[in-house]
């Protein structure tokens, strides 16, 4: 096995072992996380019922499908956060990582990817219960399943890169909570996390198309729970690819300047 692949395999294995030890904590965390989409789902199903069965063509069953897939995509979206960066720099953990001959990005990507194995296992019964309670409407083709399986990893990579870039702001200042909050608010509104993007005003939906957030939430959900055309399916993957590349380039540039700054100031 090549060197880097071996690092990924071992780190991911470490994550599985560690997170299995914390399965109760993980479960409680997931249950807490489920509360968010369930609230959205109940609200939208109520609105749909009040409007004669649908909101802009989205039925109660469609909403259920959307928010059940949401729970999986949200779990795929858990990555190393800027808050983690604060600790990493303040407590000097980064120094230990910098004296090793592997870029710390690989460690984070591999660790959180390994964590997904545990998360998906824990998610299955939750998805089953949500399906029984909310009765989603799914109309899925094999191609959509295939694209979805790629798209959730695309979402994972885009969000990893974006939050790495945001986290690296910590190289310059450790008081960046306001910036993080701004990011998370924009993401909430423009990613499809709060509501399906088709329900946004036209200008906001257009803005969402040109920003990366949609490709971390709305797009993968719509692949499975929406009604995308073939062009939209593949176009979305292409856009994800472009954002992964752009994110990687941003990480490379900010990392270079950030490490130079860290090497000047130290910790």
């Amino acid at each position: 096995m090549s060197g880097l692949a071996s690092v990924y395999r071992v780190v991911a294995g470490t994550a599985v072992q560690t997170q299995l030890q914390y399965r109760t904590t993980n479960y409680l965390f997931m249950l807490g996380m489920i509360a968010e989409p369930v609230v959205y789902l109940v609200v939208w199903q109520t609105v749909a019922d009040a409007q004669g069965g649908s909101v802009q063509g989205i039925t109660a069953g469609d909403f259920a499908a959307y928010y059940i897939v949401w729970t999986l995509v949200r779990n795929m979206n858990i990555v190393f956060t800027p808050y983690g960066w604060e600790g990493r720099i303040r407590q000097g953990e980064l120094s230990g990582m910098l004296v090793r001959p592997v870029h710390p990005l690989h460690h984070d990507l591999a660790y959180f990817a390994g964590w997904k194995v545990v998360v998906v296992l824990l998610w299955l019964p939750i998805a089953a219960v949500l399906t029984l309670v909310f009765r989603p409407t799914f109309d899925v083709s094999p191609v959509e399943v295939l694209v979805f399986l790629v798209a959730i990893w695309g979402a994972y990579l885009i969000r990893s890169m974006l939050l790495w870039v945001l986290g690296m702001v910590t190289f310059w200042t450790t008081r960046v909570s306001a910036l993080y909050e701004l990011y998370f608010t924009a993401e909430l509104l423009l990613s499809g996390r709060l509501l399906p993007l088709v329900l946004l005003p036209a200008w906001a939906a257009t803005a969402a198309d040109w920003l990366p957030f949609r490709y971390t939430f709305g797009y993968p959900i719509e692949v499975l729970a929406g009604d995308l055309t073939t062009a939209e399916l593949w176009g979305g993957l292409a856009a994800q690819g472009a954002w992964v590349l752009a994110g990687t380039a941003m990480v490379a540039v900010v990392w270079r300047f950030g490490v130079r700054r860290y090497s000047a100031v130290g910790n």
Binding site: G3, S6, V7, R9, V10, V11, G13, T14, Q17, T18, Q21, Y22, G92, E93, S95, G96, V99, R100, P101, V102
Partner: peptide, 28 residues
């Protein structure tokens, strides 16, 4: 190698043998 007496490099939740394995991969 850099060993700092007040800094922890081993993975906290797993046996040291697994951290050794990680170093095997990192240092090829």
């Amino acid at each position: 190698t850099l060993v700092m007496g007040n800094r922890n490099q081993l993975q906290w939740d797993i046996p040291a043998l697994d951290s050794f394995e990680l170093n095997r991969a990192v240092y090829r």
